[in-house]
């Protein structure tokens, strides 16, 4: 049978090609990067936040809430560090359509740090019975500042169209509320858990520059080689600033 190079066939072929490029190989061909981010020396004690300007916030934390700009857990592990592939990623990766979510709860951002892909929506939910304004202050993407009165339970920003590490997000009503959003062209990022551990999944084999970013400690990079199937390990240790 002679295949005529019609529009339809061309589209099919393109789609197959795109699928081959966009969904690079099968799962078995991927590697991953795991590690731990820690702070050397004695863990600092986080100061208590003063929330009494808004009784709704204060009531959510009967024992007081601790500042979250540097959370050091057991074994010196640092929470909320954004770890991502900074250089070396090849190919294009379609953005997830389900949003990255930040909940405003007890007048804190949960989580304080998120990553998402260019074009992926960023959703803010409001679990509090009080007003928050969500004020994003990017340098590359378009800024935003919308009010979320207590009865407005969710709002999506779909305008994060350019890669940017990191975007500062804050609430002007509650000055201690501060968060960071990393926008990347690929899905290879992670945020450390309360023990400082992270895993970046599904990384195609290759050599990469990995960066660990923390709002107070700054950023560190490391060269990491990823092989198919075997997890690569990379720890980061920050010194107290």
């Amino acid at each position: 049978m002679k295949v005529r190079w019609t529009g339809g066939v061309r589209r099919l072929a393109m789609a197959a090609l795109a699928a081959a490029v966009l969904v690079p190989g099968a799962a078995h061909a991927q590697g991953k990067i795991t590690g731990k981010v820690s702070l050397s020396g004695a863990a600092p004690t986080a100061p208590k936040l003063k929330m009494d300007a808004d009784p709704v916030c204060a009531a959510a934390h009967p024992d007081g809430a601790a500042a979250e700009d540097l959370i050091v857990g057991s074994g010196g592990g640092v929470e909320y560090v954004f770890v991502y592939l900074k250089e070396g990623v090849k190919g294009t990766f379609p953005a997830k359509t389900d949003p990255a979510v930040i909940d405003q709860k007890g007048c804190l951002y949960g989580p304080r740090v998120v990553g998402l892909q260019v074009g992926q929506p960023l959703k803010f939910t409001n679990s509090d019975q009080t007003l928050h304004n969500v004020h994003g202050m990017p340098k590359v993407n378009a800024p935003w500042n919308f009010a979320m009165p207590k009865f407005v339970k969710q709002k999506e920003n779909k305008d994060l169209t350019k890669p940017e590490v990191m975007i500062h997000v804050k609430c002007d009503v509650h000055p201690w509320m501060s968060g960071y959003v990393g926008v990347l062209e690929h899905p290879f990022f992670a945020v450390t858990d309360k023990d400082g551990n992270f895993t970046i999944e599904g990384v195609p084999p290759g050599e990469y520059t990995v960066e660990a970013w923390q709002e107070k400690l700054g950023a560190q990079t490391a060269k990491v080689k990823v092989d198919a199937g075997a997890p690569a390990k990379q720890d980061f240790t920050f010194k107290p600033s």
Binding site: N133, H135, N145, F146, A147, P149
Partner: peptide
Amino acid sequence: AMPSYADV
């Protein structure tokens, strides 16, 4: 700090 209330 003055936010948009357009959604509301």
